[in-house]
Design a protein around this nucleic acid. Structure first.
Lengths: 344, 344
DNA sequence: AAGCGCAAAGTTACCGGTAACTCAAACGGT
DNA sequence: ACCGTTTGAGTTACCGGTAACTTTGCGCTT
């Protein structure tokens, strides 16, 4: 039977040193493998570390030196939207591989929640922050600038980031889709998405989409911005709302594939045929699209990769590299088969 | 134009005190609203706090006193599985409402990754930990016990938790489903899920399912455990694999609804009719099920609620309440219409 | 006018590590 | 044999707050 070591009170380096009959400093040196001690001392100290179940207090280390912590604050709007769950997974996996931990903040798409979270998380001396979106409250911006730590803004392409940025041009994304749908002969377009207080990426996509449709001689007849999460069911009832509003549209662009799938299901259940009766386009090339019989018209965006890239930039900067960049993430249109075929 | 305050070096309480012409202690008292200072002093100090853009260093506070931090470590297997994304959202939302922050750890279903994460996160003196699953490496268990902080194990119902626990009995869940399918006349069952090194909840469901099927005079003809994430596409190709293996099954139980939907799509594309040619059952009552024409046979589990409950237990304990419980989360079967109807 | 009580401060020590310095013993070259 | 160098330690001070104690000054009572 192993010795009982479950002391309730925490074991400190001083305890280890005392047990080993050496000074705190020597124990510290052994634990950091810094050298300057004999093999015998090392063995002795390590034995006591095991026996006492010593776990270092990293708070003290960070606090003492001018070293930073291994925390990286990561703000994400919500996890109900699969897009962001993927981005977060990409970030955390990569950060974890380099010994950093994500401190999560769900901002629910509001600047106030973000500001409150920034304030709190900064008080814990994080090594850096990764924020979704490029709009922040004035006070949040002040705090971020004064913090003196790396900040990566993701999601939106940001020409004048606070520090670093990885994202994509959502306006262009929307524009490409609009032009594509015009090219397929659609003129009476609809949009179904979710809206939030802040000007966000989805809004930029809608703007680009609207512009392209107008440039192509079409009209966005109706745009629906639900106060809900951008997932399946809002796509379903959003479609219902849009159709029952009497708007005569021939094609609908959804905020993402999950919503588009909700729409597909609505129309199938109403007995309308896609794409014969109505065209459907999504966004994001999400997992659900991978199993549909009819390839969903969408826009491929490497979400996981985007998160990983953000984490890599953060780690590189924290390792002392002079990263100072705005990285653009590529996207490409998936023609799919939920809109009418090219008419050449 | 406001005064420039973007000092790169951090502003400490000492700086504020010096600027205000008072002692550090007085400034500290003002900031904590502890009393023992004049109105004039308060105004003065607060003015300097604003002017200098002072942000407290919570590390120092925790480090100084014997107070704990406001970090709560949260381990989750992965976020690709929507089930866990929901649980995490429930946890973080509730924790955030009480001023705590989640420190995320994606364990990828391995005990080694969990152990490494536990070691790291404990060194940051978290207020508590919320862990998914009930199996942990021996060393992780030691560390958790010795840490002297609240630990909530979620997901699996745990009769002998390390500390607190919220979950459901996955064996019973599986058993209920098995009995239900037997009741609908199925005898040659199949299972499609994903497997991982550790005995996990999905395995427990499969065990319960198998038991019920045997008890009912049926057989689990084939069980497929893919090395993949429990999401749409693995459900699709898993179905394909299962069918092409020559196993003659009349109904398939999937690890969750996302996989079940992948299966539904496979069979639809193969021209097989559900439930006439084959029965399909999922698990979790996930969002995707909300838009299907034919109600998916599944098991409703309140994932978000489960996460919230775990967070509430944590907060209650941290507030000094003597919570020491194993809470069982209720689930209920959704008969649905993707299995053949009751034959009475 | 002395003394008491209280409000409004200031002082000191400490939390758990580490940087920077000091110190003693061993060792080795001339 | 002597002295410089290396090795293996110990000592001290400090990071940024806060608990606990001390001090100062003022109003008010008797």
């Amino acid at each position: 039977m192993a010795e009982k070591t479950n002391k309730t009170s925490k074991v400190s380096l001083t305890d280890v040193a005392r047990a080993a009959g050496v000074s705190k400093m020597t124990a510290s040196r052994v634990l950091r493998g810094e050298g300057g001690y004999s093999e015998k001392t090392k063995t002795n100290v390590m034995a006591k570390v095991d026996a006492l179940g010593y776990l270092p207090n990293r708070l003290a280390t960070v606090f003492a030196g001018d070293q930073t912590s291994t925390f990286v604050g990561v703000s994400i709007p919500d996890l109900g939207n699969e897009v962001f769950a993927q981005v977060l997974e990409g970030i955390d996996r990569k950060l974890g591989a380099f010994g950093y931990q994500s401190v999560l903040g769900l901002t629910q798409h509001t600047l106030e929640a973000e500001e409150a979270w920034v304030r709190t998380v900064l008080s814990w001396q994080p090594a850096g922050l990764i924020l979704t979106g490029r709009s922040h409250s004035a006070r949040a911006q002040d705090m971020l600038r004064n913090a003196g730590i790396p900040v990566v803004e993701i999601w939106d392409l940001n020409s004048s980031p606070l520090d670093m940025s990885v994202g994509l041009n959502h306006f262009d994304c929307g524009y490409d889709m609009g032009r594509f749908l015009i090219g397929r002969g659609y003129r009476a377009l609809g949009y179904v998405g979710t809206s939030h207080d802040t000007a966000n990426a989805a809004t930029a996509r809608l703007d680009g989409f609207t512009k392209a449709v107008q440039d192509g001689g079409g009209h966005v007849r109706r745009q629906l911005c639900l106060h809900d999460t951008a997932t399946f069911y809002p796509g379903y009832y959003g479609s219902e709302q849009l159709m029952s509003s009497g708007a005569d549209v021939d094609c609908i662009f959804f905020q993402n594939d999950s919503m588009a799938f909700g729409g597909l299901q609505y129309f199938e259940q109403k007995g309308l045929s896609v794409p014969d009766d109505i065209g459907i386009a999504g966004w994001g090339d999400l997992p659900v699209a991978s199993v549909l019989k009819r390839r969903l018209t969408s826009m491929h965006v490497p979400h996981l990769k985007l998160g990983q890239t953000a984490a890599e930039m953060m780690v590189a900067r924290l390792s002392g590299e002079a990263v100072h960049a705005t990285k653009s993430v590529k996207f490409h249109l998936i023609p799919g088969a939920t809109v009418r075929p090219a008419s050449d």
